[in-house]
Amino acid sequence: MAYLNRFDSGRLLKTGIRMPKTRWLVRLRSRIRSYRPDTRRYTLMVIPHHGKTVFSLRIPIRLVKVALLLSGLAGLYLAGVLLDYRSALETASRERAELQNLREVNARQHQQIEQLAKSTASLQADMGRLNQLDAELRRLISTDELPAVSRGGIVRPGVNSGGQGGPVLNADAGTLIKTVQDLTLQAKARESSLNELRDALIARNQRLAATPSIPPAQGEITSPFGWRASPWGWGGDWHPGVDIANSYGTPIVATADGTVVFSSWNSGGYGNMIKIDHGNGIETVYAHNSQNLVSVGEHVKKGQVIAYMGNTGASTGPHVHYEVHVNGKLVNPANFF
């Protein structure tokens, strides 16, 4: 009795407290306890409809299960392969479309390259014309005014593009690039050549500006360069300049760019005198001025008013006595008018 009571109370305790929470656990445990390995078997018979012996195969259920599992896995694998294959097909079709697209793009770009080739050809022709223009300019500017190097600076058209310089006919990108490079080189050479020309022109302009080329004042040439009858009445004398007479106070201008080297009273009969050094051994003298407007060291431009006409020094009336010295020798100023 005691044993039974104890057993009952134990079971009551269990059912009362634990059971509701752990019912599924208990069921699982009982199931595990009652587990028997599945030993069912199947026989697969191949029965010939003739006299040959029957072929029979005994298959345990576990083998069937394993086979099912394996075939399931194989099916999954096949499905995966199929999916993969389909995705590969899709990728292939996408790539084919992309290829098509790329081909179109390529064709378009090819056309553009051809267009570019045409443009480059016309550019080449332009460059050829520029070369000719350059050469012409060089001919126009006398050769002695350009540095010796200038002749080498002329880029003959087409020297760098295979000898002929004809328009680019084939649309090969490599040739195109080479042509463009050549053009770039030619353009650079052209630029330096033109720079040279510009420098030469600037120098020429400076030289021109520094060369006396205008009369120093408006008026009448009353006494030319060379031997003449003396204005003082007795005999003749050698006149070292040109006299230009006008009314008192007529502006006298510098006949070329230069630096004033003398501007004051000359006691030798020149009166108020100005002397300008134009460089290259050229000097000009303006004398008998009523008033000098520039001082020594001042830089003057061609045409700049430097003095007013007067009658100072050995003079018989308001005029400007104009002399031109080239390397210390007197020359006829009329040659420079």
Partner: peptide, 24 residues
């Protein structure tokens, strides 16, 4: 119906069928 007598069969009988194949 039809009858198939396999190679391992031993019949000591009166046999009647539609088509008969005998290998035993």
């Amino acid at each position: 119906g039809d009858l198939i007598v396999g190679e391992s069969a031993h019949l000591q009988a009166k046999v009647k069928a539609n088509n008969i194949t005998i290998a035993g």
